[in-house]
Each structure stands twice: as structure tokens, then as C-alpha cells.
């Protein structure tokens, strides 16, 4: 039998299937999140990749913003717990996790077994989030994935507010009007996000090793800016975007095993 984790975020859906030994059987990501067909699609994809049917999955744990709305799950866990579990599995030795999600930022301090010791999250504000990056990319008329490459070619990063997405958007438009190079604006956007995130990191207190979780971690330009702000090396795993789903799958595996031992 298999255990599955599904992470239904605000902008993407991710899923991971583990076999009975805890090995990753399949993983998938769909770039649309809660309230869309994304969760069903990603779950269909991951089962297809694993070559299994839904009946082969003994336990499904959901996490993320849309964790309460997915049909047929066995239980749900907060994304904080799942990112802590997932990153601890992918990058053992991690003590601080930074997760920039679609609509929030989380900074977690974890123990040696991946247990959550403390955390901070931004409150209802898009500044510094993945949504902020999406908005800025739209203003620059580039794909969000292009921001990283652009920022590496900057020679003088622009100064952009880290207070509010709306203010920052106006600033970026002003920079464009002032003919500031796109590369410098992209680097300024990363710096703006990094400053916002760094203030949260300071609140929870940084303890090495530091790792980044979530899809935004794939933006190496942003990771570099963040390293400069927090003055610390940040580890990024290639499966960083799947960390929440993996954590959920690990919780599912644990529940599945408990259930098996209970039922004999």
C-alpha cells in the first residue's frame, strides 16, 4: 500500500506518493491551487506516474491553504508542520526554514526530528510573498521565472519598498518610466522581498543550517538576495517546492503504519 501527501497552496498544487518503505514513488506539481481543478489534476498525475489506483493509497494527508476542501482525504495537517517535516527529511540538520508561499511567508525553527519549535508568519499582507513576485513580473511584462536570470545581470539594484505590494507596484512603474534597466529593477524586487523576509527571520531568530522551502526557493536570484540580508548560507533542495507535500506524505505514512499495526 501507499501513502500520499497533497499540498494545496494558493497558487500551486503539489503531491507526493510514498511506498510502504518511505521511498518516493512519484511526485507532481500543477501551477494552479485551491479553488481550481489543480488539486484533482495533481493527484491524478501523481497516481499515474506511480502507476497506481486511488484504492492503492491507504492514507492521504492534505496540507496547505486548501487542505480542508479536498475530497477523500484521511486527515489534514498545517503547512507549517508539513514543511518542517519535509525539509527535515530532504535536508537533515536544518534548524531554520524559510518558506515563501503564494500568499504568505513562514519562518520556522525546527528540532532535530523535524518538530516545529517556533514559527512566525506574516499576517494578511502580500508584501514579500510569491504573489508579490507575480505582480512585479506582470508589471515588468516578464515571466516570474525570468526574474532570477535578470537579477543576476544587475549592476545597480533599484530601491523598492518592502512595505506594501501596491506601493511597490507604483514604484516599479515609476522606475520603468525613468528608464531604469529591467535587470536592476528585478534585483531591486528581490532585495525588497529579502528585506521583508529577513525581518521575520530576525523575529524568530536564525539558527544554522538554514534552508528554503517552497517554489520561490527555485528563484536563485532571490535566494542570493536573502543570503545577503540574513548573512547566512541558505540550502535549497531541488525538490524544495514539494517539501510540504512530502511532509504530508510522511505524516500519512506514519498514520498508515499505525493503522496497519492496529489492525494487525
Amino acid at each position: 500500500m501507499f501513502a500520499a501527501g497533497i499540498d494545496i497552496g494558493s497558487t500551486a498544487s503539489k503531491a507526493v506518493i510514498l511506498d510502504g518503505d518511505g521511498q518516493v514513488k512519484a511526485k507532481a506539481t500543477v501551477p494552479i491551487g485551491t479553488g481550481t481543478a489543480g488539486p484533482e489534476r495533481v493527484f491524478g498525475q501523481v497516481m499515474e506516474l506511480a502507476g497506481i489506483a486511488r484504492d492503492d493509497v491507504a492514507w492521504i494527508t492534505a496540507t496547505g491553504y486548501g487542505r480542508f476542501s479536498f475530497e477523500g482525504i484521511n486527515d489534514q495537517k498545517s503547512e507549517l508542520s508539513c514543511h518542517a517535516k519535509g525539509i527535515s527529511h530532504l535536508l537533515p540538520g536544518t534548524r531554520t526554514i524559510i518558506d515563501i508561499g503564494g500568499q504568505d511567508i513562514k519562518v520556522m525553527r525546527i528540532g532535530d526530528k523535524g518538530q516545529l519549535l517556533n514559527f512566525v508568519m506574516n499576517d494578511k499582507c502580500a508584501a514579500g510573498t510569491g504573489r508579490f513576485l507575480d505582480t512585479m513580473a506582470k508589471v515588468l511584462d516578464v515571466e516570474v521565472s525570468a526574474l532570477s536570470g535578470l537579477s543576476f545581470q544587475a549592476d545597480e539594484p533599484a530601491e523598492i519598498s518592502s512595505t506594501c505590494t501596491v506601493f511597490a507596484e507604483s514604484e516599479v512603474i515609476s522606475k520603468l518610466a525613468a528608464k531604469i534597466r529591467l535587470e536592476n529593477i528585478a534585483a531591486g524586487i528581490h532585495k525588497s522581498v529579502a528585506r521583508r523576509v529577513a525581518s521575520l527571520v530576525q523575529r524568530v531568530g536564525i539558527q544554522p543550517d538554514v534552508a528554503m522551502s517552497g517554489g520561490v526557493a527555485l528563484n536563485s536570484g532571490l535566494v542570493r538576495s536573502l543570503e545577503e540580508e540574513v548573512r547566512c548560507h541558505i540550502r535549497v533542495h531541488e525538490d524544495c517546492q514539494l517539501a510540504g507535500a512530502l511532509g504530508a506524505a510522511l505524516f500519512a505514512l506514519h498514520s498508515m503504519r499505525n493503522c496497519e499495526s492496529y489492525t494487525g
Partner: peptide
Amino acid sequence: LTKIQAYAEN
């Protein structure tokens, strides 16, 4: 809810 749940789970 996410924060309260995370606290409760750990």
C-alpha cells in the same frame, strides 16, 4: 487556524 493548528500539532 494554520498557526493554531501548527502549535497544536507540535
